[in-house]
Simulated assay, not measured.
Amino acid sequence: MSSGIRTWTAWGLCALTVVQLVGTAILAVLTRAIPDPTSSHSWLLNLVDNSLITAALAIVGVLLATRRPANPIGWLLTGVAFVWSTNDFTHHYARYALEHAPGSLPAGLATGWFASWNYALAFPLLPLLFLLFPDGRLPSPRWRPVGWAAAGAAVVLVVLSPLRLGPLEYFPTIRNPTGLVPPVVVIAIGLSFALLCCACAAALLVRLRQARGDERQQLKWVSAAGILLAAEGVVGGFFLPSRIHELLSPLTVVAFAAAIAVAVLKYRLYDIDVIIRRSVVYGSLTAAIAALYLMAAALGGVALSGRAAGPGIAAALAVALGLAPARAWLQRAADRLLYGERRDPLQAVTRLGDHVAVAPGPDLLAALLTGVQQAVNAAEPAWSGPMIAGSA
């Protein structure tokens, strides 16, 4: 396939995905008064979540497919986004045709039946995302049986999902007209497929342990985003309010898709170790400073006012205002510790001028680079005196 055909194919799939997302939004607005038995959340929240996730995968997919057409990762993401947008569109089409205005649109029952299982068409693609990232090849031939097993389970799910006995997925009052297979069989195969997907995900960890150089940087980006996605799924699903979980879940998927794009396209521009380390440290320091500030304000208010509510609030506000300069000083110290003087450009320029002013002529360039390194608090200078002198 020529590069032009591949580009048109990628953009065509992305365009179809966008068209289906727009159609889904229109139908969701028209059928917003109909309760959705498959979700306890509002129609608008469900629409935004699904659209945001699908759009992120489609954009990243077409970007990778056109920039790195030989790498299958972009094509896999584009395919997953297209399948999910098809599922959303057919679901809402059937809701309109079967419940909002029965008989107003053709093939309502057939579309509802198709919507009840077509999401399974993405299952064969998901294990490949883990196994083939980042270069489109398996980590080693030993992973070939795992890939074949996951693909086989996915194909079986695709074949059996339309034949599942019982009601249709989104329409509990309509029985599946092609139902032949007991649900327990489909569930058992689904669990097997999930375990095989986890085994495929372990390939990323194996690659990360063995990788060096650029490939290690690629895997660190995706691993960090994957950990964030998994942590939100576990913590958000069990410990956070459902509305907050529904808001955070699509954002973590978008972050995961963005990490894949950065890893494949721009990984040489960033040092993920420094970003993760400084982000964790800075977040911890900022949280500690805020906690100390609030604790001191609260304790000071209690000590000054006793137990009365009104005076207690007033005293807490007074203590908070009094501690504000101390909190600001601690925050500036934390910023300077992690990021150098980039938060204070005037001081950074002044310090840089001092370095250059006292440096002898031959060492002027080295002094300039050292001043910049100290101003931005870089971990290690990427130069040495002999190298600079030799290059000059």
Rank of each mutant, 00 (worst) to 15 (best):
381 P>Y: 12
380 E>G: 07
255 A>E: 11
380 E>T: 14
342 R>A: 12
146 V>W: 12
76 L>Q: 03
259 A>I: 12
97 A>I: 01
255 A>W: 10
99 E>D: 12
238 F>K: 15
164 R>F: 11
314 A>Q: 10
375 A>G: 14
165 L>F: 05
72 P>I: 06
129 L>W: 04
116 S>Q: 04
233 G>E: 04
89 F>N: 05
290 A>I: 11
155 V>M: 03
59 I>W: 02
343 R>L: 07
193 F>D: 08
312 G>H: 00
35 P>W: 00
281 V>K: 02
19 V>Y: 02
279 S>Q: 00
325 P>M: 03
320 A>W: 08
128 L>F: 05
323 L>D: 03
39 S>W: 01
41 H>W: 06
112 G>Y: 05
366 A>N: 08
219 L>K: 13
206 V>W: 10
178 T>N: 13
213 G>V: 07
26 I>F: 15
254 V>E: 05
236 G>A: 06
68 R>I: 06
157 L>I: 02
335 D>W: 08
260 I>R: 02
330 L>T: 10
350 T>W: 14
142 R>L: 02
140 S>T: 03
97 A>F: 00
141 P>A: 00
103 G>F: 07
241 P>L: 11
288 A>T: 09
12 G>D: 11
78 T>M: 10
177 P>F: 00
224 A>Q: 09
323 L>G: 05
98 L>Q: 01
